[in-house]
Amino acid sequence: MSLIVPFRDPDAGTPPSRVEDYRSTLLRSPHHRPLAVPQTLSEVTGPADCWDRLMGPALSDLTTQHAGPPIGQRIIVSGRVIDDSGRPVPNTVMEIWQTNAAGRYVHIRDQWDAPLDPNFTGAGRVITDAEGRYRFITVRPGAYPWGNHQNAWRPAHIHLSLLGPAFATRLVTQLYFPDDPLIEIDPIANAVPMPYRQRLVCRFDIATTEPHWALGYLFDIVLKGQDQTPFEDDDHDH
């Protein structure tokens, strides 16, 4: 009999589904509260140790995917994937996508007046090591306008997607940069109540910075964890 150790509930930093200021949520957020059900084997399991087969090998340098180097400030983003008890999440996949330095996506639906960079796609993928550490190299993304309201601009951000160890730990988030004045007025970042919004702001780090080469930023990702003590699933209701 497999042990069912449920993952913790979302904490106070979780955004609501509906946010008045982020207009796309208005018709896409459920009216019903999500239904509380016990976690079963289906929720506490997830793919593991199969990232090459499933998604392909790691792509940790977004600056070497084309004939030449992309334009922009080269940066290193590094950190750990851990759970909310501080335990590392080793050998887990994190997918990455972002704009180029001018704030333009390679996507055809992004047609704003900023240049594309033939040497930059902005897609990557890393696998955490035994201590949950990851590191990737990219260029600093730019801000971009969007249609949410008059003169709306997204702060520069990197999209990050993690499966974690189980179906229950799925997380997609966005990393923001320190001292970006657009964070304060961005409806998506501000869907996360303060002070928790600041969990999404990375930290400049001189020790991660490489002399004459790239600025370094630190960003830890914290996934839902499990209670310390596993229990038999036929002994408990939860």
Partner: peptide
């Protein structure tokens, strides 16, 4: 540091979720 950030121990907790947005197609679905 002017304000709290990702590594501030006082803020430690689950990383908040954000939308995938409309431009994920070259980054996620293979």
């Amino acid at each position: 540091a002017p304000r709290q950030d990702n590594l501030d121990p006082a803020l430690f907790g689950q990383t908040p979720s954000q939308t995938v947005g409309p431009f994920f197609h070259y980054g996620l679905p293979w």
